[in-house]
């Protein structure tokens, strides 16, 4: 229990992943959904870094590099999504994702 190993981190990542999935499916606020996505991406990064450290070999650097790229991707995604949210808000005067009804069929 006191010896921290790979499984500890994987379980933590699974908890954060599931919290993220719950936020993604249950929030009606678009920003709330995005926060759920950020949680999942954090779970992904914990996975990568933990695998990099504990799996042995010299792959640890791969893990850290991909985690860096994931952080950048998250930033880019947030930038586009927030811009789209403000555009949505300007047009519909709300940020409730269940409110849109201009297209259907």
């Amino acid at each position: 229990m006191l010896e921290i190993g790979l499984n500890h981190y994987l379980v933590l990542a699974a908890i954060i992943f599931c919290a993220g999935v719950f936020s993604m499916v249950s929030k009606r606020n678009a920003i709330g959904v995005l926060i759920g996505v950020e949680l999942v991406l954090n779970a992904v990064n914990i996975n990568f870094v933990a695998f990099g450290k504990y799996s042995g070999g010299n792959t640890s650097i791969d893990a850290q590099v991909i985690a860096l790229f994931v952080i950048v991707l998250a930033a880019a995604e947030a930038a586009v999504a927030v811009a789209i949210c403000t555009n949505y808000y300007r047009n519909l005067n709300t940020i409730d994702i269940d409110r849109g009804d201009a297209v259907s069929g």
Partner: peptide, 23 residues
């Protein structure tokens, strides 16, 4: 989410991950 969590726990803990000396 709870079902997903249970499934993931089973998977993650049940898998025989490759281990090595911590880098």
């Amino acid at each position: 989410s709870l079902l997903l969590f249970a499934a993931l726990m089973g998977l993650v803990l049940g898998t025989d991950w490759q281990r090595g000396e911590p880098t």
